[in-house]
Design a protein around this nucleic acid. Structure first.
Lengths: 168, 168
DNA sequence: TTAAACTTTCAAAATTATCTGAAAGTTTAG
DNA sequence: CTAAACTTTCAGATAATTTTGAAAGTTTAA
């Protein structure tokens, strides 16, 4: 397997994998490409490598920026913008957790709170309230746990937490 | 808010939420419906409540069965099959973790191993190998951690692990 | 200024994922 | 058996998402 082949395999698998997690293929592929790219790349570079349109690259790069896992890089003497992925995979994972927590877990917890507060005295209302409460409790625990994980430093994660799990 | 309204809100939010995680809306909605349903439901019941076709219900219920978070229930004296969701939300979450680990993390780790093994001596090959190795290491750690979590009992999760995080 | 270099936008087109429903398949009661 | 009750399948239809590309917008060098 030569380098080009290996890189393409990596990019396309990363892309296919992304779609299973609700991330569009191109976005995942751009991320993969930037991960394995030593240099920061311009929109033009990405277009050529992945064979996608300018608009598509623009939209997805902006999305990756909003997730905080890709950054703009300005090259001295160059007018155009370049992009580079956060190379520390641990930081990347934490950042994705953080964003998903904020964007998704938050709103769901809010809904569950609303549903808990709603007064439901009808037949069957007890069961519904019980299910909602249990999910809410679980969600709150998960939320707290994620919070700790996100705030902890890397050493703690790879050190103490891993030891905790291995010990078990 | 009356019960019906609350239930519909729950089902549709669960559905919308699912799509962000690569789960199709109907599947997530069926799951939500079964979660809040005291009785097991037949395909017919689900069709009526969610207003979807027989084929769609069949496909998605089978999918939920394959994830191990919905079970068949046979009612005495009835020929048709009924379905009920696992009601323990902790067990459900563990089951989903377990399946995602098996279906997705496994294949990715395999790819990363293949890429690590491939001999790449070209210019730029070092960087590529380094990235692949780091992701692989991270993936292996995650894999081990998930393994412990899945094998541990519920008490351990809500007890020791939570304490560990709160202590921190 | 201004014009070239570059980025963003977004309506329409292309693609992909999901859903329908009727037909085929299966099971069971009698 | 056999016919009714029920489940599964899957080709085609529909819906949702993604992509394109050209036009509009912005920035900068001179």
């Amino acid at each position: 397997m030569d380098l080009k082949e290996a890189q393409e395999k990596f990019i396309s698998t990363w892309g296919a994998f992304g779609t299973q997690w609700g991330i569009n293929r191109t976005m995942a592929q751009i991320h993969a490409l930037l991960l394995i790219s030593e240099e920061a790349l311009s929109a033009e570079d990405i277009m050529k490598k992945l064979n996608v349109s300018r608009g598509n690259v623009n939209m997805n790069v902006r999305d990756l920026l909003s997730w905080g896992i890709v950054h703009k890089v300005l090259k001295f003497g160059e007018r155009k913008e370049f992009f580079a992925a956060e190379k520390d995979i641990y930081k990347t994972a934490m950042q994705i957790m953080k964003e998903r927590r904020k964007r998704e877990l938050g709103p769901v917890l809010e809904l569950l709170e609303d549903l808990k507060l709603a007064e439901i005295n009808e037949q069957g209302g007890d069961h519904f309230s019980k299910v909602v409460s249990e999910i809410h409790t679980f969600g709150e625990s998960t939320n707290k746990m994620l919070d700790k994980m996100i705030k902890a430093d890397e050493h703690w994660f790879t050190g103490s937490l891993m030891k905790f799990f291995v010990k078990k």
